[in-house]
Design a protein around this nucleic acid. Structure first.
Lengths: 220, 220
DNA sequence: AGAATAGTGTCTGTCAGACAGTATCGC
DNA sequence: GCGATACTGTCTGACAGACACTATTCT
């Protein structure tokens, strides 16, 4: 078996699942129930199973389903992490994926097969994480921020119907800075992915028009 | 052994090595000397060897050295390709890297351990390629183009000293379209990575000032 | 002088940032 | 009316595209 490890790397998939709540941007972490790094917080992840998985992306989707009970359509590869030292079990490859969860489905996360799950601020993780997962979160966060900087709309983070102000708050949460309202609206008005509805969100003030994402929209 | 294949994927690294010659942008392909896909053209690549390689990127660097005798400092991961069907030897993962070769080192390519090597136009590959390498070239090309579109300067493609016109021709070769000279110069004048020299390239016409890349520059 | 290429000046439209203004609700 | 939030108008500076212009070499 030790001979095997010299020939075949262990292959993992890890997922950085982001959402936005009242506190801002959040990333899902799970507390490890097994060695190695037992008790430490980590990104949800698992071993690639060639007999079960059609691809690495499919493996990531399976892991999200079995470990935390969520079904995410939109997964994007971030990059790989590899080497002999990143996991005590041996030479390993981890392929990191980034995923976004709509803010009205935050509570849908179950905790199958893990000790605990929690949403944490990716800008200030309070824990010392397992393996190289602090690095992984940083890489996923940067990918997400770069896309939003390039005017991609993170509509996967929004509920079915949302106001433009809510969308702006979401982009601000991702970037970690506030934006000018008029500038933001002017920029996104041209987007094909944004569909106006006839509905309004009522509140204590002037009602805000509701929008929805175009079906089949991409986060690009 | 067949049991093994159900547990461990084969892990490959492939490299799309680009250069620019008089014809425009080129990508390096090698003709396979072994089964599977013997005789077909493919990107240079090889199996990850955990006992030799410190990381996937190191593996890519080793493959470039042993197969075609070039030593490339700058490697960038593009993405992974995976699944049961992409290689007849079994469930596999291929991690694709992109690399750039200076135009004055084009002839440095040797052909160790492969039947033949050739530089081909990545926009119009004439051959039917091995595995999913046509897809891989497309992905690497898009990465390269996107960086140049975002005003990154592909200085790794340039020789030690070069004129601004030569740099523009290189960018045009990458993008596959021509650019306005004044616009191009205005844009790159602000770049920290571009260092003016006192030397000039003499020719049949007005001499052109020579530039060099700042040492430690990044392609971003 | 003329050809050829290096390099610059300028007009125009577009868009981001900043900020103030108007509109429409609940109370 | 007042507070609060939605939404819009406008000024300004930066920059891209287009294109014409000047500069410097060789023959």
């Amino acid at each position: 078996m030790s001979k095997l490890k010299e020939l075949y790397p262990l292959t993992f998939v890890d997922v950085a699942l982001f959402c936005v709540d009242e506190q801002g941007l959040r990333v899902l972490l799970v507390q490890r129930a097994l060695e190695p790094e037992i008790g430490r917080w980590a990104l949800p992840g698992g071993i690639l199973k060639p007999d079960l998985d059609a691809s690495l992306e499919a493996a990531a989707r399976r892991v999200l389903g079995t470990k935390i009970g969520v079904d995410i359509s939109h997964l994007e590869e971030v990059r790989t992490f590899s080497g002999a030292d990143r996991d005590p079990r041996g030479w390993s490859v981890a392929v990191l994926y980034c995923a976004l969860l709509p803010r009205d489905q935050i509570d849908a996360v179950a905790k199958n097969k893990v000790a605990a799950v929690d949403w944490l601020d990716p800008f200030h993780i309070g824990h010392r994480l397992a393996f190289d997962h602090a690095l992984q979160i940083e890489a996923a966060l940067r990918l997400l921020q770069n896309k939003v900087k390039r005017n991609a709309l993170p509509l996967h983070l929004m509920p079915e119907l949302f106001t433009l102000t809510a969308l702006q708050r979401t982009c601000e949460a991702v970037l970690g800075r506030s934006m000018d309202k008029a500038v933001f609206r002017r920029r996104i008005k041209g987007s094909e992915d944004l569909v106006e509805t006839e509905e309004f969100e009522l509140g204590r003030q002037r009602p805000a028009q509701l929008y929805r994402a175009r079906s089949g929209f991409l986060f690009e």
